[in-house]
Nucleic acid binder design. Structure first.
Length: 920
DNA sequence: GTTACGCATGGTG
DNA sequence: CCACCATGCGTAA
């Protein structure tokens, strides 16, 4: 079989085709083209997967050969007489060193010779990894054994109790990513066979851990690879503990082929975060990146980044680790970390600091997989002290531990506050973890979110300029790394219509990218003021709004999302017909169009099908400069107002939800806002560009003007709304608790609460209020302070703007009429558009302005709430946002100069700044 | 009263 | 439906 031929050698080979064939092995083609067993010495038909080829595919073998491979007898069976056999320096076991099949079955010893993996592990354990003092490996065997749960393996293999031998097939056919790489089965098998571990019964969960450890981390790479070769017995009965402990060592020292897989497919795989197991190992993301620059004095083949083409964080690792944890070190960063030493830096992972991480608690939550893959295994919650060096060479000792959590573990690094502070990090910044090889020293770097001028933001792709170094991709040029990032992420993004524009201001956003992802493009394109944004709103072409009346005002509610169209100016023509003026993208001339026309964001004269005479840029525009002047505002404010005025005349659509969204975007469009937003919160993963929740619509705390009590901007409204919701929620919980404890009594009391609500609520900020709040309350009249409270029920059947349906619909079970509830729910998913604001004012009134009128009632509400005897201090309202409580300084609502939300002032959105929550 | 600890909760993918 | 993880929050120090 050709396997022998290709083998190890190919270390330097550059594989360009990762897909199926290209393997370093000669007959890879046969794998694909013929049905014959990959083993050239065999004439049977292939039926099962064998070892992994360098291309990432697997040698397809006949049943017999596959079995031999799986049992670690392949070389013995087929190349027994071939050259390349060597004896383990330790145990003497013969290992075929000249075949890819057994590539991972041995390791080269510093002193020469080889050691089978079983011995290698022991050796390394004995010597211990410098980075991980022996103490790290103390975990009792039983504990470690837990890491090997047959079930896990099965799960990983996706075949439950299926014999490992069958596992390969699973991989074969799997187009879906599997946690296990093809070689895993082999390992599993061995495990199951008890060859490796004596523990008869392995816990599933632990097994999983085991698999993870060996797959994600370098150790895994090796072990994994090793196993892959099918050198049964080599791994022998290593204790899991040992196995894991050896991981890094092995990775760092072991043989290995550094195969720069850089094929596009690989990139894709990575991009997807789900690499097909059968696919080539993910690009040596790190390896590549470091190539040339980081391998100082270290054998490139030893950097542990790739083994059989597997990068430090192999495909599986990558697929397992969320992209957001993928290290995105730049050469500079790495360089800096490595300093002048000859160390090789192994980027491990990185994590954007959450509010909690950066808080005073001093606990940095570590991604589980990362912790398990790269940090010493710990069996006790107390964990171990971990010495970490920062990029400046300063050493820190953190307690690496975990908390039991939902049958799982939550890993944390304790005592990071000093370090965090030292680095002047804050939520949104990123800390990076890497390891210096061969020292094994853990290095913690960081990257300031704010320092990143460019980043890919993205969700998980953010590549920021590291605090340590500069930019990311740009520096890498052709390096695989960059390829990965670019072809990978970027490609993906491109596909998603995220253009290069994105790179503009993502950085900060990037900081929050994880939770608050705003598409760069959107941000850029929607760098508008609220007013401007409103001008872009259009009802869906076929919309059929339902009219609701709130406080005497009619609103059109649309089921469909608003449409962002090209901004136009609505006006009346000479005949008194409503029309709209639109400006050509090319010639900038204004053209008159029918009122109901919804234009695409890009529109030119050539698209003027309504006025053939003016369907060319060469034709003069109808408007005189004077008319145009009148039509066009000189400033945004004016513009927006006019636009709104015009819009009003023509039933322009004003969508509350849409406004919120746009407001958001508008805010985000501001550089500052961007920064702010990036740090606004990390607790609401679902936030999207259109999200109008309090978290999204408010600037980071401390920023932006303060809202006046009477402010009725969306932010304020939301805050108030949320507060109410929270109140209701709490009430509900409270009552539920009571119910449980004292059923009977509670029932009566509950009824009372629910039923009595109306009356108490109607009264001025009664302390009793809580119950009242349970009800969805419609706004009271603008002028009536008490209105709000009393209005609760009166407005049944009408939309309650105070509700945040999507998350609060369940809040008031016993709350008032179903109608209200229904409305709330409906509102949750709709964009409530204030199509018509039945204002007596003849002039068009911007939605925001219109809302202004209601400001007072909010103020009153605020007061009401403040005075409310509820447990929530008036000065520090806690509003619930999607389950996350947010504390809103009253100042937000009560204090500061009032900037009317209606003003087309981006800052208007910052009003709530002070309202921002600590966490968010 | 404050801080720290560690488990619980709940949103998100 | 589940794992992950950010944060909440009760309890102890």
């Amino acid at each position: 079989m050709s396997s022998s031929s290709s083998t190890t050698a190919t270390a330097t080979a550059t594989v360009t085709n990762n897909n199926s064939n290209n393997t370093s092995c000669c007959s890879s083609s046969s794998t694909v083209l013929s049905r014959k067993c990959f083993n050239s010495d065999c004439t049977d038909f292939k039926s099962r997967k064998g070892w992994r080829l360098r291309s990432g595919d697997f040698a397809e073998l006949c049943d017999r050969c596959a079995s031999a491979h799986e049992e670690g007898r392949f070389c013995e069976t087929f190349h027994l007489n071939a050259s390349g056999w060597r004896g383990c320096e330790s145990c003497g076991k013969r290992v075929h060193c000249g075949c890819i099949v057994s590539l991972q079955a041995f390791t080269l010893l510093d002193a020469g010779g080889i050691a089978c993996m079983a011995c290698a592990r022991k050796i390394f354990v004995m010597t211990s990894n410098p980075a991980w003092p022996p103490l790290f490996y103390h975990s009792p065997f039983p504990e470690r054994l837990k890491d090997l749960s047959a079930k896990s393996w099965n799960q990983l293999a996706g075949s439950g109790p299926v014999p490992w031998r069958q596992a390969p097939s699973l991989f074969n056919s799997s187009t879906t990513q599997s946690e296990l790489q093809p070689r895993m089965p082999y390992e599993i098998d061995r495990l199951n066979a008890g060859e490796r571990f004596s523990a008869p019964s392995l816990e599933k969960r632990n097994l999983e851990d085991f698999s993870e450890r060996f797959i994600n981390g370098s150790p895994r790479n090796h072990l994994w690879d090793i196993v892959e070769n099918g050198n049964a017995g080599i791994i022998g009965d290593e204790q899991p503990q040992l196995l894991s402990s050896v991981r890094e060592d092995i990775s760092a020292q072991q043989f290995g082929i550094t195969i720069p897989y850089a094929s596009p497919s690989e990139s894709k795989g990575q991009i997807e975060g789900s690499v097909n197991p059968v696919q080539p190992a993910p690009l040596p993301l790190f390896a590549k990146r470091f190539h040339g620059t980081l391998h100082k004095g270290a054998d490139s083949s030893v950097d542990g980044q790739t083994r059989n083409g597997r990068p430090r964080i192999d495909a599986r690792g990558k697929s397992q680790l969320l992209p957001r944890y993928w290290p995105r070190f730049t050469d500079e960063e790495l360089q800096q970390i490595s300093g002048n030493s000859n160390s090789v830096i192994k980027p491990l992972f990185e994590k954007m600091l959450s509010a909690s991480d950066a808080g005073r608690i001093g606990r940095l939550v570590l991604p589980k997989k990362c912790a398990e893959a790269y940090f010493p295994p710990i069996s006790q919650p107390e964990g171990l002290p971990l010495r970490v060096q920062d990029s400046k060479g300063k050493e820190w000792i953190f307690q690496f531990r975990f908390w039991p959590n939902n049958n799982s573990r939550m890993y944390v690094l304790e005592g990071v506050t000093p370090c965090i502070q030292n680095m002047q990090l804050q939520a949104g910044d990123t800390v990076t973890f890497s390891r210096l090889e061969p020292e094994g020293k853990l290095v913690m770097g960081f990257r300031k979110a704010s320092s990143t001028s460019l980043s890919d933001q993205d969700n998980e792709t953010s590549q920021t300029g590291d605090g340590v170094s500069a930019n990311g991709d740009a520096d890498f040029g052709p390096s695989p790394w960059s390829k990965v990032d670019k072809s990978g992420y970027i490609a993906k993004e491109v596909l998603e219509a995220k253009s290069s524009i994105k790179k503009r201001k993502s950085s900060t956003l990037g900081s929050k990218s994880k939770r608050l992802r705003i598409e760069n493009e959107d941000m850029i394109e929607l760098k508008l003021t609220w007013e401007e944004a409103q001008g872009l709103l259009r009802p869906a072409p076929d919309h059929v709004p339902s009219i609701v009346v709130i406080e005497g005002f009619e609103f059109e509610e649309y089921e469909d999302a608003p449409v962002l169209g090209k901004p136009t100016i609505f006006a009346m023509d000479d005949l008194g017909h409503k029309i709209q003026w639109v400006q050509c993208e090319d010639c900038l001339k204004w053209r008159k169009l029918p009122l109901n026309v919804l234009l695409p964001s890009k529109w030119t004269c050539s698209s003027n099908t309504w006025d053939s005479e003016r369907s060319s840029c060469s034709v003069a525009q109808e408007l005189t400069s004077e008319q145009l002047e009148n039509l066009l505002p000189s400033c945004n404010l004016v513009t927006s107002k006019r636009l709104k005025a015009a819009k009003k005349d023509i039933d322009n659509v004003e969508a509350l939800g849409g406004l919120d969204t746009l407001a958001n975007l508008a805010i985000l469009g501001e550089d500052e806002a961007l920064l702010a937003s990036s740090q606004a919160t990390t607790k609401h993963p679902r936030h999207r560009p259109g999200c109008s929740c309090i978290v999204c619509i408010q600037p980071p705390s401390g920023k932006g003007p303060k809202h006046k009590q009477t402010c009725t901007c969306n932010v304020c409204q939301t805050v108030k709304r949320r507060f109410k919701t929270l109140m209701m929620k709490r009430e509900k919980k409270q009552s539920e608790k009571e119910a449980e404890t004292t059923r009977k009594q509670q029932e009566s009391s509950a009824e009372k609460l629910l039923d009595d609500d109306p009356s108490p609520s109607s009264n001025a900020g009664s302390a009793s209020g809580s119950p009242n709040k349970k009800k969805a309350v419609s706004e009271g009249s603008d002028d009536d302070p008490n209105r709000m409270k009393s209005s609760a029920s009166p407005f049944k059947g009408q939309i309650d703007l105070n509700i945040k349906p999507e998350r609060e619909d369940e809040l008031s079970p016993g709350s008032d009429s179903g109608g209200t509830k229904r409305m709330l729910q409906g509102a949750s998913e709709r964009y409530l558009r204030m199509q018509r604001f039945l204002s007596s004012d003849g002039d068009g009134i911007p939605a925001s302005v219109m809302l202004q009128g209601a400001s007072e009632r909010y103020l009153r509400m605020q007061r009401f709430l403040s005075s409310d005897g509820d447990s929530i201090p008036a000065s520090n309202h806690t509003v619930s946002s999607g389950g996350a409580d947010e504390k809103v300084g009253s100042a937000v609502i009560l204090g500061g100069s009032h900037q009317d939300a209606g003003e087309n002032h981006p800052s208007a959105f910052s009003l709530i700044t002070s309202a921002s929550t600590p966490a968010t």
